[in-house]
Amino acid sequence: MSDFLQSYGFLIVTLIQAGLLGLSLYFPLMAGQLSLASPGFYALGGYVAAIMLTNPAFAGLRDTLGNGIFPLTWLAAGLLCALAGVIVGVPALRLRGIYLALATIAFVEILRVVSLNLSITGGAIGIFGIPQAFGFQDRWQYLLIFGPLLALVLAFTYMLQKSRVGRAFRAIREDELAADAMGVPPTQYKVLAFVIGAVIAGIVGSMSAPFLNTWNAKQGTFDASIAILAFVLIGGSRSMWGPVVGGALLTAVPELLRFLQDWRLVINGLVLVIASLYLPQGIVGALAKLRKSPPPARPPIAPAPDAKGGTL
């Protein structure tokens, strides 16, 4: 068992990490907004943590807080991403559909180029030698922070979906004009959904920086945007389990197929193509359809009135 955790601990944590990033994209989608900004906030959160944990300017703070610095980095990353989410969200969410997607890609690119050019982010080499959260020695120990975060986010999502806010999100997704007419302010709710996603991505980033030992501009790229979108689409975008299943599956497949060497990427591609062709609702969507009881059968045709026994 310990061998298993040693070998696969890192992978298991990356599955959860992928699921969480998928969820961060799921919130804007819940309100019908196709945003690809998650890797930007993920990278931002990671940089916040990496800088707080390595920069000499924070040395005093690190000494006084000890391990308390780690929760503080999560908090700082979450707050900063919320702020950035509002600043980006308010103008960007005036756009719709593909234009919003393009604007969010631009945001990710801007952050990437800025981090390549600043000295505080270490330029292209990035920040390295990040201390380990709570003195963790093995990668699987990061389950102890990523696991509860996933549980917390799932619980939050579940409650949100049942709440008034969740219903407002869905109303906007189905028909923004009608929702507006019914007294649901679309801009306000769209920005809210966007900011929730940003905060989650930021916190995941701040936990990931010590987990990866290093942080650089390669973490938030256009490729990452597409990968995370694929998590949600392959998993299913109409259920909160979709991003989790999709993220875990798409991260696990290439790693578990390592023994196939170069063929593993071919299989990964096949999974993507087949899933998007035959499972338009995603994997979770398809499973839900299977579980749903079949529509009630047509009632048996009432026996025709007996013609023989008639009296004439």
Binding site: D3, Q6, S7, Y8, G9, F10, L11, T14, R139, L212, T214, N216, K218, E255, R258
Partner: peptide, 15 residues
């Protein structure tokens, strides 16, 4: 990428 490098190292060390 960084993730693949860590996975490759873990594999070599423990498996």
């Amino acid at each position: 990428d960084e993730n693949s490098a860590i996975n490759a190292f873990q594999n070599l060390i423990t498996k």
